[in-house]
């Protein structure tokens, strides 16, 4: 019997805690695979944040720390400064990164901390039951914007990759989605590249992943994937926002 497919050694055998149809699990797999393929799993330290991925320290098959809400990039900075040869990454939701942890994230990026941030943008607060996130779309109904998000009351959805593009310390920045096989393959390439850049000590790397939350969007899993395509991607265009490696080659 030949083995056609094996679960990545980058993840533990602990069953994932995510809802059926949630794409958090896919992103975990892509991170795990990247760590194994780059042969950095045994020097990796994961930072789990507060949100649905709070238990991710149980899933990534490496050392880990669990950070207070929003503080993952500060914790990662603390580790990376004392262990510069280790691989340090955070895994954060949009409430965690784009709301309560925006200061920690911007400053880590601005210092060019040599860490990798996996940023899950699902346009909602999943864990606490579907409240509005800074990334929720205009018109999106959430438990705290029941008539739909509107600009006058809530401001516009915050575009993290567009913002971070302007920061000098950022070495690699791409927005990807995990709503279909083609996009998953692109997401994998992006995540792996981010870790490769960290291995090469190029600076701050972040991958924004458009991810589904069928439960709090009130959709069937398949419809949630379609909504990423129809509603999220037009608001959050996919692509490479910054690639210092490619820029270096050009120059």
């Amino acid at each position: 019997m030949t083995v056609k497919y094996e679960k990545t050694k980058g993840l533990t055998d602990k069953p994932l805690s995510y809802c059926p149809g949630c794409t958090h699990g896919i992103v975990h797999k892509l991170v795990g695979e990247s760590l194994v393929e780059l042969d950095i799993l045994d020097r990796a330290i994961a930072i789990a944040s507060v949100g649905c991925s709070v238990f991710s320290y149980q899933f990534f098959n490496c050392d880990a720390q669990q950070a207070p809400h929003g503080r993952a990039c500060a914790e990662a900075t603390g580790i990376k400064r004392v262990l510069p040869d280790n691989i340090v990454f955070t895994y954060q939701g949009d409430g965690d990164l784009a709301s309560i942890g925006i200061a920690e994230t911007i400053h880590a990026a601005n210092r060019g901390e040599n860490i990798t941030v996996i940023f899950i943008n699902n346009a909602i607060y999943g864990m606490t039951g579907g409240q509005m996130a800074p990334t929720s779309l205009i018109g999106q109904k959430t438990t705290t914007s029941q008539d739909g998000r509107n600009q006058a009351d809530h401001g516009n959805p915050i575009k993290i990759s567009e913002m971070f593009k302007t920061i000098e310390g950022v070495a690699y920045l791409e927005r990807v989605a995990v709503n279909n096989p083609k996009n998953v393959i692109r997401a994998k390439k992006a995540i792996k590249k981010a870790f490769k850049y960290q291995k090469e000590k190029r600076g701050f790397t972040m991958i924004e992943v458009l991810s589904s939350c069928p439960v709090n969007w009130g959709m069937k899993p398949v419809d949630a994937l379609k909504w990423i395509e129809s509603d999220m991607i037009p608001n959050y265009p996919l692509g490479v926002f910054k690639d210092k490696g490619a820029d270096d080659e050009k120059n």
């Binding site: 207070p68 503080r71 400064r81 004392v82 200061a103």
Partner: peptide
């Protein structure tokens, strides 16, 4: 806030 979380990390 960031400083004490850096302390946590290290």
């Amino acid at each position: 806030v960031a400083a004490i979380n850096m302390v946590y990390g290290a």
